[in-house]
């Protein structure tokens, strides 16, 4: 079946962050540590999958001129649900992600997938699309967080890597580091693509 195709396109060839350049706000903001990145990736994947399933299943009965408000309400509903669940079971993670959990509502990836994919395709295809996009988002987020945490704090998943005498390059964990690291990652991907093409 081509469900595998729907799933795998989100991972690399159509990666929502690295290729389509969507959802930058949360990627830049929460990539200060790998733990945060994983938590955020999980929350966004949950919302993506659930919103894709619901929107795909109601795609035939939603009047087309109010579809955007309907999608936003559905997405906001799932965001609130994951917000409450995280607050209940992982309060520490919830506090450190802070305002970026409610802001999943306005993450362009989710509304983008609802509009571009779920509103035109079947439920199972939408499920795999959501899962693939969510994982692609998580991978990009974790890759960025990995570089920022290791270079900027000398830690990985909160564990010190280089001993006490290591002076981390603080700039990486500060806001400028997020922009510059992501810029370099994108340039590196361009380089790889160039090599492949030639």
């Amino acid at each position: 079946m081509n469900y595998w195709k729907e799933f795998s396109k989100g991972l690399l060839s159509d990666n929502p962050v690295l290729v389509m350049l969507l959802g930058m706000c949360s990627v830049l903001a929460v990539s200060t540590s790998v733990i945060n990145a994983l938590g955020m990736g999980f929350a966004a994947t949950f919302v993506l999958v659930m919103a894709n399933i619901v929107i795909s299943s109601i795609r035939k009965i939603v009047p087309s001129n109010i579809r955007i408000p309907v999608y936003i309400v559905v997405i906001a509903g799932f965001v609130t649900i994951i917000e409450l669940i995280m607050k209940a079971y992982v309060p520490d993670l919830y506090t450190s992600l802070g305002i970026f959990i409610p802001l999943i509502v306005v993450n362009c990836i989710i509304l983008g997938r609802a509009e571009a994919f779920a509103s035109k395709n079947g439920i199972i295809a939408s499920l795999f699309d959501g899962l693939g996009m969510g994982l692609g988002y998580t991978i990009a987020l974790c890759a960025l967080a990995f570089f920022r945490e290791v270079i900027g704090a000398g830690k990985l998943m909160g564990i010190s890597l280089f001993g006490a005498n290591f002076q981390p390059a603080l700039i990486m964990i500060l806001p400028p580091g997020a922009f510059i690291t992501l810029g370099c990652m994108l340039a590196f991907l361009n380089k790889m693509q160039e090599k492949k093409a030639s």
Partner: peptide, 14 residues
């Protein structure tokens, strides 16, 4: 060449 477009924009933003 590899920095053209968004990558250089991000570095500028940094």
């Amino acid at each position: 060449k590899v920095f053209k477009g968004i990558p250089i924009a991000l570095v500028t933003a940094g």
